[in-house]
Amino acid sequence: MTVQNITVQSGDAGIRLDRWFRRHYPALTQGALQKMLRSGQIRVDGARAEANTRLETGQDVRVPPMPTAPAPIRPRVSEEDQAFMESLVLYRDASVIVLNKPHGLPVQGGPGITRHVDGLLDALAHEDERPRLVHRLDKDTSGVLVLGRTAQAAAALANSFRGRDAKKTYWAVVVGQPEIQGGRINLPLKREGGARGERTVVAQPADKAGQFAITDYDTLEVARRRVALLEMRPMTGRTHQLRVHAAEALKCPILGDGKYGGEDAHLEELPHELHLHSRALSIPHPEGGMLEVAAGLPPHMLETFRFFDFPNPVPAKPRWRR
């Protein structure tokens, strides 16, 4: 086993260093990777690097001797999981897959999480190439979720999300009615620990931990001032941004959002699940042009829409404008 110096290829541009190692050396554990980083055995262009270092085409990665254990064998996908994942597909071509993620299904694993989108992606593999996640939705947020079918496509899509070239549209049912029917929310946010785990809070102007967060919104429907249907378009991608902006800036928590709205976020006769849905997305396609995809509502939001007689137009068919 010898030290190698590997040049970053265009298909890996934009990904984190730790993900680059997981992609090319799947037998390497996270603990071993962190040890190599701390000791300086791994370097990028001759300099020490962190796990979250973003790689660029042409950079030189110093790779110390790697474990010789074979890559882990992928678990066989059951027919049930195969059918389930296929049922979520809204759009598919040689570079991109778009899913309508259900409410309650996490995108990635974590403590106590055994079933998640990332763990089911082998069901959508093509010619032994597994689709890759390029962004995330919260567990309780439903709707449009984009995957890259190749490393190069995934890098291009991820860059679009980071560069805010992806235009995201959400539908949210909120409790109450905003005083101003539409406009822009510009309220900085930060992550804060607590007894119940991390949460997103409003950052004070002098707080250096705060990050700017901007959301455009319009009120589409109002039902007797009890609830309103909002179209929300995040200009930034902070964790729980829409949920905090609705509760704190508009004083109208998203229906079912007990985390940020408390008891005020629940109405007795309506479903208590979070009513936040990634309705549509417009994003540059890795092969050029723009891809536009929309997703239908999850069952609990359909129930609420019927209860208040909100209009629910059929989502437009996916369109790749080249």
Rank of each mutant, 00 (worst) to 15 (best):
P111L: 14
Q30G: 03
V134D: 10
R132P: 03
L99C: 09
P311Y: 06
R115L: 14
L33I: 10
I214E: 13
R130A: 06
Y25N: 01
D118W: 07
I214Y: 10
L137H: 01
Y91H: 10
N159M: 13
D18Q: 05
I180T: 13
D18N: 14
T68C: 02
A316E: 13
V227H: 01
P298M: 05
G112I: 14
R115G: 07
F84A: 12
S160Y: 04
H275Y: 05
H277M: 07
I73F: 00
R16Y: 09
I97V: 15
R23Q: 15
M66A: 05
L274W: 03
H275R: 01
K167D: 14
A158E: 13
E86W: 00
G296I: 07
R38N: 07
G258W: 06
L250Y: 11
T169D: 09
A158K: 08
I6V: 15
D45T: 12
Q241T: 06
N100W: 06
T2D: 11
L281R: 03
Y170E: 00
V8L: 11
D93I: 12
T169L: 05
V63L: 02
E268G: 13
V146Y: 11
I97P: 02
A195P: 02
G148F: 11
R191L: 13
G197R: 12
P102E: 03
P234R: 08
R54S: 08
R76M: 10
A206E: 15
T53C: 02
D138G: 09
V44D: 12
T2M: 07
G197I: 09
G258Y: 03
Q181V: 04
E79T: 14
A123W: 09
R19Y: 09
